[in-house]
């Protein structure tokens, strides 16, 4: 998706806003010769930043803090999920042993 189509999704995000967010590294679309190309994840992230900035009136200098913490939370959740699946794939006695050492 190119920047023009992204901007059509929002009534209160200007091109200047979006370029500013990209320059600050809050949004990281693919940088192609033809211009930025946005994927679904980028769109979802723009929505999140819009919510933080507009609906919640979070100050601009606080947004990177929130994004960084969120990225860590999501990273940890993905790690947990990988661990959960790894444990689930183990034989019964191994799973019991792991559970036993957590409790």
């Amino acid at each position: 998706m190119l920047i023009a189509s992204v901007l059509r999704e929002f009534t209160d995000v200007t091109e200047t806003d979006l370029i500013c967010w990209i320059n600050r590294g809050w949004v990281r679309p693919d940088d192609e010769p033809a211009g930025w190309r946005f994927q679904d994840i980028d769109l979802a992230r723009i929505r999140l930043i819009r919510d933080l900035s507009r609906d919640m009136e979070v100050a601009d200098d606080t947004i990177p803090l929130i994004l960084s913490l969120l990225d860590q939370v999501y990273g940890l959740r993905d790690s947990m999920d990988a661990l959960r699946r790894a444990v689930a794939a183990q034989p019964d006695h191994v799973r019991r042993a792991i559970l036993g050492s957590i409790a």
Binding site: I41, A44, R45, G75, A82
Partner: peptide
């Protein structure tokens, strides 16, 4: 509306040292 938490491909926003979901 889709939320960020449900979107696929968050890997690009993982901080250094992150890994793909399936890389156990």
């Amino acid at each position: 509306r889709p939320f960020y938490r449900d979107a696929q491909g968050r890997g690009r926003y993982q901080q250094a040292g992150g890994f793909t979901e399936d890389d156990v």
